[in-house]
Design a protein around this nucleic acid. Sequence first.
DNA 1: GTTTGACTTAGAGTGCGCTCTAAGTTCTAG
DNA 2: CTAGAACTTAGAGCGCACTCTAAGTCAAAC
Lengths: 124, 124
Amino acid sequence: MTLLDASLSISEAAERTGLSTHTLRYYEREGLMLGGVDRASSSHRRYSDADITWVTFLTKLRSTAMPIAKVREYVDLVRQGDASTPARLALLLAHRETVLAQLAEINNSLAAIDYKISTYRKGN
Amino acid sequence: MTLLDASLSISEAAERTGLSTHTLRYYEREGLMLGGVDRASSSHRRYSDADITWVTFLTKLRSTAMPIAKVREYVDLVRQGDASTPARLALLLAHRETVLAQLAEINNSLAAIDYKISTYRKGN
DNA sequence: GTTTGACTTAGAGTGCGCTCTAAGTTCTAG
DNA sequence: CTAGAACTTAGAGCGCACTCTAAGTCAAAC
């Protein structure tokens, strides 16, 4: 098996993505990897650049509170090939709206917190 | 018992705060109410304006991902009276930093999602 | 070649924040 | 006065996203 490509062990992949090895395996079990992750020596995982790129994007979806189930929907669309591009676009646009709503709510709450901070600074 | 004050039943309080009655009772059990909630007829809860104001602020803390345990810390400080004002200020300022970090991360992820959206629009 | 540590699996366990249930009590409308 | 809705409690249950465990296999260094 050539290791000349940029493939990584699971612990290296964990380090590069900021996830734990447990979480990487969990995501794979949950069907969140686009294709199967390659195996070296027919057992240890080898993460390709494409795998890392995908996991990185996946963490962007997760960090904007996309549920695992919706990530899986997206993955299923990707697996269906080019024909699903409009559906993927629609899914991401819908998610974008929920992210904007999140941001609005957090900013709104932050304003209330800042107001309270200002009252404490003034000495109540 | 006078009902001339603006006190609300738990279902009215739920409606005004956007929480469920279950959640309002849960918060109370968890020690997140500043004082005990008044009781009418020695059993049913009556929420005062101050209670509603507090619950509203509490939801701002929660919607910015402050854990229940930290909200309780804040509540405990409030119960200690004016002497705890500096500690409360410090707690809120620290939380403010985590909120700013949250916002930065979400915005960063949103940029990646927007980029992906743009590739789908261009036809990959 | 053997040790040490990283890897494998299936499945159990955890922490958080609710959410619901059951059995009983109280309020309100007619 | 009575029916039905809303309330009470203590405690069990749930959904999500991990996180860990156990028992075993594999690999890199000596």
